[in-house]
Design a binder for these strands. Structure first.
Lengths: 234, 234
DNA sequence: CCTTGGATACTTGTATCCTAGCATCCAATA
DNA sequence: TATTGGATGCTAGGATACAAGTATCCAAGG
């Protein structure tokens, strides 16, 4: 049972208006992205139901959702496994994210929203205060940075889709903090993007965002080489 | 029980390697898109389980998936309803689809794939042979047309995402065949797009695709006015 | 030594039952 | 008449039992 580390002490409180299945889904999702559940690892409905003292039913629902997000693979009558990372799938997801976020950054740049600029700079400050090596905290703030852009552009819908897309990528990004992409550089890129938005230059903002998002392309092979057992070759 | 029409005679065969929940999900998805289950209509797990002679469990799983696709709304302890169509959500979905499909049509235009061109022209011929008024058949062929583009661009992943996005739109499109968009015009637009791909002009192909996809913007208010009870105002 | 067949212990899929919360109706009451 | 409170019947959420398929191990037989 000691295959878990981070979320091993987590337990459910009967949080208002959120089903057990939905709660478990979020918990497992984070656990997979943060590699507390490593790619290739076998999990089972019974195991999880015992682990969190609930029945198989909500676990099943969580598994189904995770399966649709391609974070796990449910094989009937055989078992359920955390999906290994597919380089091809990550690159496809990245490509999709790029065209979505570029569209978004162009929109907000044309809006000249001072409140947004302030929020973004505040987020960057918080990113600078994150302890080096606290990948979880930084990843969360990074998410919030990009989410702010989407919401200020009025693209809640697009963001909801993007969140699903990014699950795959975030596994790589989480691993890459130890291996490839230094946090200070990402912060610098965020700053550049905000500067472009503030100066109202959509083309430059697009260019900076594109460059920012394409960093994953170079870090991906590094991560794949460092953690070959987490990847499936395709 | 006679609220259904088209799929009322449908029943399950124990199709190999596809769970009842997954089968029911596909069935209900189509039924909702084709307005056999109309927006606002109440459905229930028990009703469907009786209807198809299965237990509530697979129905539940199908409902959860449909809920994530925003095709139904599950209200705990109250009931489950076919979601009314949100103009805003449809427009957001359309926008997302546009940036995805434009990216795709640019890619395939640069590829000069003769096999693809042949397939597309064949699909257009089949579209021309569809009986006027057979919205189902045409919508299916239209889907296949756009899917061919995506797959030939090697964007299976993007297409999978796009499919989810398009569920909302397709409800509108299905209604619009009776009210707004004539099939021959859509076929002409498809032909233009293929011509642009064949001549290798990505900019023009993009422009034609954009124009093609933006037809929904003009037909949407017409449909919304014609079927006000199917829409929620936001 | 290699193959084969079955017992066994898993897995997920499905069915059924129980629980808890919400809506409605209707009678009792001010 | 208007309000209130409870009985009732609905809903979905969760727990549990059973069914069916798969992998593994191991012993019997060539």
């Amino acid at each position: 049972m000691e295959t878990f580390n981070t979320f091993s002490n987590t337990s459910f409180r009967p949080r208002e208006s959120l089903s057990m299945g939905a709660q478990l889904h979020r918990l497992l999702r984070t656990a997979i992205i943060e590699c507390d559940l490593v790619p290739g690892q076998a999990i089972s409905e019974i195991e999880m139901s015992k682990r969190f003292s609930i029945s198989r039913q909500p676990v099943r629902e969580a598994f189904i959702k995770l399966g649709e997000e391609r974070l796990i693979e449910v094989l009937p009558q055989r078992g359920t496994y955390v999906r290994k990372i597919s380089v091809r799938e990550v690159l496809d997801a990245r490509h999709l994210r790029e065209i979505i976020e570029i569209s978004i950054v162009r929109e907000v740049t044309l809006k000249h929203d001072d409140v947004l600029i302030g929020n973004l700079r505040q987020l960057i400050t918080r990113q600078q205060n994150v302890n080096l090596g606290d990948s979880r905290a930084f990843l969360a703030l990074d998410e919030e940075f990009h989410r702010s852009l989407a919401l200020h552009a009025g693209r809640e819908y697009a963001w909801r889709i993007a969140e699903g897309i990014k699950a795959q990528m975030n596994r790589v990004r989480f691993l890459s903090f130890d291996a490839a992409t230094p946090m200070p550089q990402l912060i610098a890129e965020h700053t550049e993007i905000v500067n472009c938005i503030e100066s109202g230059d959509p083309d430059l903002a697009e260019q900076k965002m594109e460059s920012h998002l394409r960093k994953l392309i170079t870090s991906l092979p590094i991560v794949a080489e460092r953690y070959p057992e987490y990847f499936v070759d395709d």
